[in-house]
Amino acid sequence: MRRDLTPRTLALIVAAILAAGPFAPQWTVFLLTVALAKGLVVLGLMILLRCGLVSFGQALYYCIGAYAAGLLGLRYEVSGVFTLMLAGMLASGATAFVLGFLLARYRSIFFGLLSLAISMILYGLLVKTEALGSSDGFNLLPSTLAGFRPADAWVRYMVLAVAVVVAFVAALLVNRYLKTPLGRLAPAIKDNEIRVEYMGASARHAIHVKYVIAAALAGLGGALAATTVGHIDPEMAYWTTSGEFIFITILAGTGNVIAPFLGALIFGIIQSVAFDISPNTWQMVLGSSLLVVIVFLPNGLWSLFSRGKAS
């Protein structure tokens, strides 16, 4: 069996980011942290996409994670980064556990549309909830780490450092999960559920588990995004946010747990560079790159790296 180089590669990237972070300009630190937050959501979508499911409503869990973190600050004045992320992850995971009983029965377009409907319900609720700032949302408290509040210049680096470590752990765990029998079942579920059933496994149960994992990751990403940006609003649950996550998932490909983070970073770079150069055509650049990837790199950008290794 080939040795898995992923953990080592991940560790190297993490070390590099932690070492370079203090010297990097603030905007790159911000870009990177947001990419890590979105990468976590996409990591979850990748797990679902591997068994053929595309959720057009993953923004639901992104938003729940963000609002869970925001509410903790608003109501109980909690500002510890790890507590907020844990809260985001648990809130989303628990919601997905309940909704999973329904959604794990759905496939293809119908899975996507039902997810979409549910995320839009949350959007509709938040927009009309004045206590939570309606469509304007609200600001978060400045983050702390273990009760310690760093100097302003270091806050961004601190959040980045936490994000990198959290993303590293999440990626390692998912990498291991993908190699368990349940994780490996994904392409089989995608190809032929009848056969999965007649091999003695429940596709519905496997999908439910994957759905909860994906949601927990999205919640984690949402809480992280909230602490990074310092502001949350209902737009986080809108369908265009889900569209963006799917965009990155397709761009990245499902080949490896590093791909989602790389995809999110490339997305962030395209978005900010294109927006800087021409604010009225950045969506055109994004749309065209998505078309090019779907047509020429159906397995995503990651297939550029794994070429030759794959059969």
């Binding site: 029998p181 079942l185 392409p187 089989a188 190809d191 032929n192 009848i194 091999m199």
Partner: peptide
């Protein structure tokens, strides 16, 4: 009823995965 996009070997491995699980 096969896993169409997997190789014959991967088909077997997917089945064995279920047995292990």
């Amino acid at each position: 009823q096969l896993y169409a996009s997997l190789t014959a070997f991967e088909n077997m491995m997917a089945g064995i995965g279920v047995v292990l699980r």
